[in-house]
Design a protein around this nucleic acid. Sequence first.
DNA 1: AGAATATCTTCGCTTACATCA
DNA 2: TATGATGTAAGCGAAGATATT
Length: 246
Amino acid sequence: MALINNNQDSNNSHLHLVLGLSLTTPNETTTTTVANPYYSSSNEPSLTVTVSSFSNGRILHVKRERDEDEDIVEEEERVSSRIISDEDEDGTNARKKLRLTKEQSLLLEESFKLHSTLNPKQKQALAKQLSLRPRQVEVWFQNRRARTKLKQTEVDCEFLKKCCETLTDENRRLKKELQELKALKLSSQPLYMPMPAATLSICPSCDRLGGRVAEGGGSNKKIITAFTMAPNSPFYNPFNNPSAAC
DNA sequence: AGAATATCTTCGCTTACATCA
DNA sequence: TATGATGTAAGCGAAGATATT
């Protein structure tokens, strides 16, 4: 048996063993003891791995035992017949890639809808239900969260693009309006024509003169700008109000 | 109590493989 | 059949949280 790689299983502090399929005899049982990389000192428990039940060169059953002085922990893990090997039939080190079945993907999707993260118990249960290793379920959820995040980022990006376009249009419109008003003012001098307040509410970044609107009268007169007009609602989004921000 | 260390979990990035046009 | 694009399972390291010494 070739012990190609041992990798720390982040979930349950076991060894995640990737076993080569170079065993010669089908249905052979092999036992090997490996040092547990979690423990550095020599008196710490070792791990005994028993691999058995081979069929057509595929590992069907792995039994792992961690023997400690008083507390024998025994665990059995049924390994999918689709276990990944990192050694090809011709002996080359080609990494085989597992494809989940439709049923497996469907069930994973369903449980992702319920909760996007799994606790160890849920992970174990799901793995058992799907005949996958807990690590595989964990990886699937990690990748699924990443895909969700990426999709959301794309949606946000599209939204911001649209906002930008809207604000650019609004800015252009306001500049044009300002020019027209200036022209009108010049042509109609000395005639004074008060402008509607709303027309003058140009944000400071578009026009350094603009943005001030008198509200109320007498001593209650209050100077406000377009930026002080935002409601207190936590859902207020200045991008939804093109006149409020640029 | 606080520091050092170990362990667990998640994330981001990357790689390698499978599939399809 | 070969090839490039795309989707995705899995590897790897970093970071943060928590437990233990």
